[in-house]
Write a protein that binds this DNA or RNA. Structure first.
Lengths: 245, 245
DNA sequence: GATGAAGATATGTCCTGACAAACACTTGAC
DNA sequence: GTCAAGTGTTTGTCAGGACATATCTTCATC
């Protein structure tokens, strides 16, 4: 049974109750009174103890889940979120980066099928819409934890097999087939997770996600893959060093 | 009075009601039946028409707000979100990029004060903790819309004045003082907004934010600024082209 | 025509209540 | 020691309700 956190609420304050609770919990996380991984008091107990309603308590907790500070699971409770992953913005694959940083990446290929290229994929790969391409969906884990959900489209002629992809990263597979990605256009953004994505990534339904869309080209300038990846923002960031041109 | 969107709910489905509603609205946005900026039906009307409770309808709308698809304001209603901003990952300032893309950036300097450097700032600027630095907080707008909230720390000797910053971007101000940023280390991440940040940026309280922390150095290798920026993910993404090296 | 007040509209905040479903733990059988 | 079933715990989903607050529109006055 977790130790109840001391939280003072001020009902005369213009700050909403749910936000006061969220800030108190955040402060406890920041100053170490709540450690990564630690189990929090359950919703009903917290609400009763603070004299607020359960929906209000849930809203406070949800705010912190959305900021990546807490992780919640039905039946399991609410925990302080674990540590993070940082990644250089380079033309590498996540697989390479994880391996180099001593983490053990594994890949679960969720889908590996041939589809007619949708309009956005066709545009990115510079092929006629409807051309058959290979669509790959993979869940990447690091040390057992889901990290990223990646959807990639490749021309059929160069697409690795499902077996290859479960053993290696995509770019190593391509290199093994003589395809050398040399240039990539990449767009990094963010949004909140859908319910399905959240479940796949072991995140709360509204957690922030880092998104990355990338089109890679070989030395001849031919598009070799178009990928749309989503990363857990609670565990992930991109790092880069730039030089003024 | 907005046209009610046709939404079919399946109460026998394992998909939660709120999610079915969210998906239906998302589909209408995707296929153009709901245009950017368009006003949606109000919460109570939507709930009554669909035979669901108002909290359920609100949860559906919140899910879309969190994905950046909708914008909600008390008293004003729920609108489809407006268009987006894309930005290259280069050593430029947001001011430069907006100007180049034909948008009219304005800067509101919220704070311009001297503070003892906190530990993270001291570390980034490679100065002793507690050294006095200039802390600047600015709200950047493009064509009147808030886009970014930026906090920067600079050594006192090179820090531009409040007046300079309201007229120009930070990097132009620095160049005007003979300081040339040449290298920067940058980290891009994401999280959800706090209530205060959301208000500043005219976003929903749980909207996804793109975050960027940057330390810039001059040609001698001295740190000239450390900045922590947050951008509206609904309006913003980073773009980059990379070369395998 | 401009301005301010009042009213209407719509979302934000908070409450009580109930049932479903996922997870963890305990117990008993093998 | 392992495994399956049962139980308890906890969050997820949904409902109904009320009041507060921000925004917009309308109307009256100057």
């Amino acid at each position: 049974m977790p130790q109840p956190l001391r939280i003072e609420l001020d009902r005369t304050s213009p700050v909403p109750l749910y936000h006061q609770v969220a800030q108190a919990i955040q402060a406890a996380i920041d100053d170490g009174r709540l450690a990564p991984g630690e189990l929090l008091e359950n919703e009903i107990s917290l609400a009763n103890r603070l004299g607020i309603s359960r929906p209000t308590a849930r809203q406070a907790l949800r705010e912190l889940v959305d900021k990546g500070q807490l992780v919640r699971k039905r039946g399991a409770g609410t925990h302080v979120a674990p540590a993070r992953i940082r990644r250089p913005v380079d033309l590498t694959s996540l697989y390479d980066d994880l391996t180099k940083s001593g983490q053990k990446p594994t890949t679960e290929v969720l889908e590996h099928t041939t589809v007619p290229a949708p309009v956005d994929v066709a545009h990115a790969l510079d092929i006629p819409e409807g051309t058959e391409v290979v669509m790959i969906r993979r869940l990447r884990r690091a040390d057992g934890d889901p990290i990223a959900l990646m959807t990639n489209y490749l021309p059929i002629a160069i697409a690795p097999s499902r077996e290859d992809l479960e053993a290696d990263g995509l770019y190593d597979c391509l290199r093994g087939r003589g395809v050398k990605p040399r240039i990539a256009k990449q767009r990094i953004g963010a949004r909140t997770a859908s319910a399905a994505e959240a479940r796949m990534l072991d995140e709360a339904p509204r957690a922030a996600l880092l998104t990355m869309e990338r089109t890679a080209f070989d030395e001849a300038g031919a598009a070799v893959e178009f990928g749309a990846h989503i990363y857990r923002a609670s565990r992930y960031s991109f790092e880069t060093t730039m030089f003024a041109g």
